[in-house]
Design a protein around this nucleic acid. Structure first.
Length: 817
RNA sequence: GCGAGUGUGCCGGAGUGGUCAAACGGGCUGGACUUAAGAUCCAGUAGCUUUAUGCUUGCGAAGGUUCGAACCCUUUCACUCGCACCA
């Protein structure tokens, strides 16, 4: 605590936090008389190191909104929980030689204690913990429902393997060829694995975007990730067999001079001739030595397979190459190459001296293919058509010959959900020798994680034989449990539903509760989840909707991405760099409210900022000054100036909080309290209103001063002040329009009178703020005509239909009678 | 390459057609208070002079629209973030 402040913030904080808790003012209950509002921050992964500034920032942003809505009279649900399962806990536990469960429970306890110090409006009766079998039971239950509906399947596929985490990870978690958790280079392995058929929902995930009030870049990222494209799948004949190839450019079919199959294609062997075998093997070996990450920067390379493909339309025979730049699991893993009109194919053709055949008019240079549109040439019957027309015509022609189909392709892959690690939700499936894969009976849920396992290399769950061996519910024979656990993103895909009814043991949730509180009216979290959690949770919600459990398809109509907080020099905070700021230490030193106010005044919540201790001094000054002002304040009558400021603050802050533009509110509050400090006297009521405006930002000190002001209720749940427009009519200061403007009006009048129109009266528009300040008589004198003044900001708002005021075309702001 | 942004004083950033040398913070300079420091308060912080509710210049750059542009349009440059060989 700063010695100089003289105010014991800690005492005030503890006092009010205790009172809030005792009176349960933040506990949510279903109440049909009030409108509900569900504010949610992304629940944390409880790591051993406790809260970092990013957490605090996240919670405070949500808390201010929740407090605002509470004061506006909404029935607010503002819960918190812990995303407790997952690899880091397991790894940390192994390192510390304790059980992941103990590690996690200790971390949660620590997190909760720290969160409670922030003065947040959480409803602590609704806390959830995903590591609790009562929670993950329902993960398993949903999984079985998906299994029932055919959305769960097992297949051998190339998957992302993280050697560091010793497990498979999903595409979403392996972006850029690096593990999302630990940053290790991802290996591609072929393994039999469990998938959720999220691709079934690809179209609806895209479609749903239209309904969402989300940051555009988040939507753009999701769209990009889902990657829908329309095209044509054309059959080429290779060695007497049909090979489909996906293209978005069927118009260039006459220009195909070679084919490229992915070097990772599962049927590559069928294409390799005896003669080329050695070359291909050499090439594949070389590729293996390069990680996927480096591959993206690599030059396009390939090797001739020895096979030729027959172009279905020209009957040309073109060589088939195996290449490093073709994605194995997109389309059919093979592309038709048109070097004249595709830059990649162009580079490849140059390198391997393959023929380039131009089929669209345009300039091809030494370095660049022609990728723009144009008229078709060298394309048989299709010459002369624009390439856009040709896309349709050629596709139609091929379809009549049964050589092609119109298809839609997605970049989105099915969600690989199985993890070969311990600290996750056990997959509720059994392997029976007779019956094959059998789902666990619903009544046997939850499948609880066995406590006794050996941690080390490999999957710990395979070390407990007692747990693994079970009877098959179908044939009563011997079966073994599926030893994989679910990706922890499964746990977080529906947790917001559980908050609505967190302790239900009989069902996943009470439908009435969920349909009352959901959807989440405001969801706040980091942008890094755009293509993971935020896609998964939409998928889960759609699924639960489809099986009739919930009425809505989109869980989060409004999303807010908070910015990052970096250190003073703009560097990302990290423990290893030693530049991280511990929010609780700062709060101990400066007080919670000061820190809250500081964080919100540094930058808009969506932008983030570079943390500097210097800045917090300013906020401390502000908070201290409020106490100081209160001591010196004389209560009496409000001045007009102050009433105007207070009411504009009420109006502005209400709008700003609604838009999560908190930074501007902190400025407004500074100005307001500065003005209060300069008032000779002020009414108690107005001071109270000012405190209310500050309350969401600085809840403890405003509670304290509210009490000192003589109130018996909590300011936190008092009524948000109302804006009084009547106050504004007192503005009277005079202002002149600029001389040039007057001159311009005069010139116009002259022009009109020269044309024979006599001008009797002029209508002038000014900005609303100026209208009461305008020196009208001076203006009339300047122009030499009678005039009316309009308070209109935008000339487009004028009513040109109103015949009595004739508008001069093209010239805003002046009207003649 | 594609997508989303950003560019204003010493710094963070307000301002999105007329209230504008530019809010509000921070920093710096000077002053008051103090034995001193801190805290607090006051003044200054683009240039010029006639020191003024003065003039000029100015909001990445260049054009344009307008009586009037940081704000609208066009071109351009720079930076940040995200995705990326998706055919």
């Amino acid at each position: 605590m700063q010695e100089t402040s003289g105010i014991n913030f800690q005492k005030i904080e503890e006092k009010w936090q205790k009172k809030w808790q005792e009176k349960k003012i933040f506990e949510a209950n279903i109440d049909d008389k009030k409108k509900k509002f569900y504010v949610l921050e992304m629940f944390p992964y409880p790591s051993g190191s406790g809260l970092h500034v990013g957490h605090a920032f996240n919670y405070i942003i949500g808390d201010i909104f929740a407090r605002f809505k509470l004061m506006q009279g909404f029935n607010v649900l503002h819960p918190i929980g812990y995303d407790a399962l997952g690899l880091p806990a397991e790894n940390a536990a192994i390192k510390d030689k304790i059980h992941p469960e103990e590690y996690t429970n200790a971390s949660i306890k620590n997190f909760m204690n720290q969160q409670k110090k922030l003065g947040l409006t959480y409803d602590w009766t609704r806390v959830i913990n995903t590591a609790n079998p009562e929670y993950y039971k329902w993960d398993q239950w949903i999984f079985l429902k998906m299994f029932e509906k055919g959305l769960v399947y097992e297949k051998e596929a190339p998957i992302n393997w993280c050697p560091e985490c010793d497990t498979i990870i999903s595409n979403e978690q392996a972006q850029g060829g690096e593990c999302e958790r630990c940053g290790s280079k991802i290996e591609i392995r072929n393994m039999k694995q469990w998938f959720l058929k999220i691709t079934d929902y690809a179209d609806r995930l895209l479609e749903g975007h239209k309904k969402l009030n989300w940051p555009e870049r988040t939507i753009a990222m999701q769209k990009n990730w889902i990657g829908k494209s329309y095209g044509t799948e054309i059959d080429f004949e290779i060695n007497g067999k049909k090979w489909p190839v996906f293209t978005t450019r069927p118009d260039t079919l006459f220009g195909v001079t070679f084919m490229v199959v992915s070097a990772n294609h599962s049927k590559l062997n069928e294409l390799i001739s005896e003669k080329q075998k050695k070359d291909v093997e050499k090439f594949l070996k070389k590729l293996k030595s390069v990680s996927e990450k480096d591959l993206t920067d690599m030059e396009k390379e390939g090797v001739f397979t020895g096979s030729y493909a027959i172009n279905p339309i020209t009957k040309d025979k073109v060589p088939v190459y195996a290449g490093n730049f073709v994605v194995a699991d997109y389309g059919s893993g093979m592309v038709m190459a048109v070097p004249a009109h595709d830059q990649r194919d162009f580079e490849f053709a140059k390198k391997y001296k393959i023929k380039i055949k131009q089929v669209i008019e345009g300039k091809i240079t030494k370095e660049r293919a022609y990728t723009e549109s144009g008229k078709l040439i060298n394309s048989g019957n299709f010459n002369g058509f624009s390439n856009e027309e040709a896309k349709t015509k050629i596709t139609d022609y091929l379809i009549t010959k049964n050589l092609a189909r119109r298809v839609t392709n997605f970049k989105l892959r099915d969600w690989s959900v199985a993890r070969q690690r311990y600290w996750g939700t056990p997959i509720p499936l059994l392997h029976c020798k007779k019956c094959g894969v059998v789902p666990v009976d619903e009544k046997d849920l939850p499948v609880v994680l066995p406590k006794k396992v050996k941690f080390g290399k490999g999957n710990p769950l395979t070390t407990n034989e007692e747990w693994l061996n079970v009877k098959c519910p179908r044939c009563r024979g011997n079966a073994r449990r599926e030893a994989n656990t679910l990706d922890t993103f499964v746990n977080s895909s529906w947790y917001f539903l559980r908050y609505c009814d967190p302790n239900n043991k009989k069902e996943i949730f009470n439908k009435d509760d969920v349909n009352f509180w959901m959807p989440v009216d405001l969801y706040i979290g980091g942008a890094e989840h755009a293509c993971m959690h935020l896609i998964y949770c939409r998928f889960y919600t759609m699924f639960l909707h489809d099986i009739g459990l919930i009425k809505f398809e989109e869980p989060v109509p409004r999303l807010f991405n908070q910015g990052m907080i970096n250190d003073e020099y703009g560097e990302k905070m990290s423990k290893s760099k030693g530049n991280s700021v511990e929010p609780l230490k700062v709060m101990e030193e400066y007080g919670v409210d000061t820190t809250r106010f500081f964080m919100m005044s540094e930058a808009s919540p969506d932008k983030g900022f570079n943390w500097s201790d210097k800045g917090i001094q300013g906020s401390l000054r502000f908070v201290n000054k409020i106490f100081d002002t209160f001591e010196k304040l004389k209560f009496g009558k409000d001045s007009q100036d102050f009433l105007i400021k207070l009411n504009s603050a009420i109006k502005n802050i209400s709008i700003q909080i609604e838009a999560l533009d908190y930074r501007k509110s902190t400025i407004e509050l500074r100005q307001l309290f500065d003005l209060i400090a300069n008032q000779k006297e002020i009414s108690k009521e107005s001071f109270g209103k000012s405190l209310k405006l500050l309350s969401p930002f600085c809840p403890h000190i405003t509670e304290e001063l509210w009490e000192k002001l003589g109130h018996k209720n909590f300011i936190s749940v008092s009524e948000w002040p109302k804006f009084d427009e009547a106050v504004f009519k007192f503005k009277t200061k005079e202002v002149d329009l600029n001389e040039k403007y007057i001159k311009y009006i005069k010139e116009l009048i002259e022009k009109f009178e020269l044309n024979g129109t006599s001008v009797k009266k002029v209508f002038v528009y000014v900005v609303p703020f100026e209208i009461e300040k305008l020196n009208k008589s001076k203006l009339i004198k300047g122009i030499g005509k009678e005039l009316d003044i309009f308070s209109v900001r935008d000339e487009k708002k004028y009513d040109p239909e109103n015949k009595s005021k004739k508008a001069i075309p093209g010239i805003p702001g002046i009207y003649f009678e």
